[in-house]
């Protein structure tokens, strides 16, 4: 368990599968995430079961409020060369009824603090849809810097740009 001001991060559990199944099939909630295909209950169960032991190369977490309400998932992964001490960040807070309460910002801060303090990362990077301004504002608030615009990087009923953002150790706000 890793504690933030509003949320806590813990290892995913099989009991999370049913709620994640409901949340990740809410098209409005996952529109900004690039989730293309419907997800089955079994696929969610396989996903959480395979991520019960967060580690340097694959640190995925369930995000919940201090009261234990599951908000979604987040993670630091793709640390292919540990020499670079760089990870990709993913965050999916997919309960729309809990948006705009500061959970996204607190999850970002808590996850990045975990990455720097526990994993000894030097750099955390993410790709976000350029149209996803709500998310980009949150990332900038905690210190992420826009580094690149990858043109026409993904298809979603047309070609769309992605923004590459990163946060180096010492830059977390």
């Amino acid at each position: 368990m890793y504690l933030g001001a509003l949320v806590r991060l813990r290892a995913p559990e099989p009991r999370d599968a049913d709620r994640l199944y409901e949340l990740f099939n809410d098209a409005g909630a996952v529109a900004g995430l690039g989730v293309r295909y419907p997800v089955s209950r079994q696929a969610e169960l396989d996903w959480v079961t395979g991520r019960g032991t967060p580690s340097y190369g694959s640190a995925h977490f369930a995000v919940e409020t201090h009261d234990g309400l599951l908000l979604g998932t987040c993670g630091l992964f793709d640390t292919e060369w540990p020499e670079n001490r760089s990870a990709q960040l993913g965050i999916a807070l997919v309960d729309r009824s809990q948006w705009d309460k500061g959970y996204g910002t607190d999850t970002m801060r808590t996850l990045c603090r975990f990455g720097f303090e526990q994993m000894n990362l030097h750099r955390i990077e993410l790709l976000v849809f350029a149209s996803h301004t709500r998310a980009i504002r949150v990332y900038e608030k905690v210190g992420f810097v826009r580094e690149a615009v990858a043109r026409q990087k993904h298809w979603n009923a047309g070609w769309h740009d992605d923004v590459l953002m990163s946060l180096l150790e010492g830059e977390l706000r």
């Binding site: 030097h122 750099r123 580094e147 043109r151 590459l164 990163s166 180096l168």
Partner: peptide, 26 residues
């Protein structure tokens, strides 16, 4: 190819951090 941006300290090699350029071609 077009330089789309510069990723800071993305690689550690030969004793120091290196920036990387992301380049794209459509």
């Amino acid at each position: 190819f077009v330089t789309e941006g510069r990723a800071r300290d993305r690689i550690f090699k030969d004793g120091r951090w290196h920036d990387c350029l992301l380049m794209g071609l459509l």
